[in-house]
Amino acid sequence: MTATDTKRLRRFNTARTLRQSPMWAKHLTLGLGLIALWELSSLFLDPIVLPPFHSVVVAFFVLLFNGSLIAALGQSLLLLVLGLAAALVTGLVVGIIVGRVSIVERMVVPFLGALYAMPTIALIPLMLVWFGFGLGGRVVVVWLVAFFPMLVAVHAGVRDAPRDLTEVARSFGVRREITLLRTVILPSALPMILNGLRLSVGRGIVGMVIAEVYLRLGGIGGLISEYGAVFRTDYVIAAIASLPALGLLLAAGVEYLERRVRHWRR
């Protein structure tokens, strides 16, 4: 697309308002406007329904400095890391087997579609019943929601490994499957696998919160339901606001992993 085209497109699409100022200024204006609207409407509402913005900020810092937020984040993070690691390992093993052994692939693939469409969340109560309400049960919940995206991504990546490269490797005398995997298949499947991991992180957070809220125990989810039960809405919102921080933290973790692995790749 040439500059002319973009220019044309812009003229086509741009709303006339707010047109001249730079984008960050518009973002700032909208953000501040929303906060102002929030403050204003909280004047007319019960703080249980909508606490003013500033008291949410205060609540956030109270939680931060009395240590309960850090503790909760630590618990949630532990749960997530365990569950995701389990999903990553099992997803890799099963995905590679499914992707490399054609008879297994033919056996399993039709079920993958069905399992993928299944709202795994419906099985969470059962998982907790089966595996207990302790850390083990919660880890299984995170694993359950994170496993399928991982498996599907690994399988697709392994299956689509370029045939010509595997042939090159074979022609240079690579005989053992494990060498082939390490030298050709996994490196070429890597972008897909990392994509799957990112997706699993998102889902894992959902599973984590569900497990915690369901059990009203531990972590950010526990914090949320704890304050929800005593109608401290400002603290509820402050605790909810810390969830994106968790997401960002894990995304950074995946990125770190990506850099490490890419390094190994070269």
Binding site: I224, T233, I240
Partner: peptide, 11 residues
Amino acid sequence: YALPRVAIIPL
């Protein structure tokens, strides 16, 4: 989109 809906159940 990223917010787990269960988290806002109390709200």
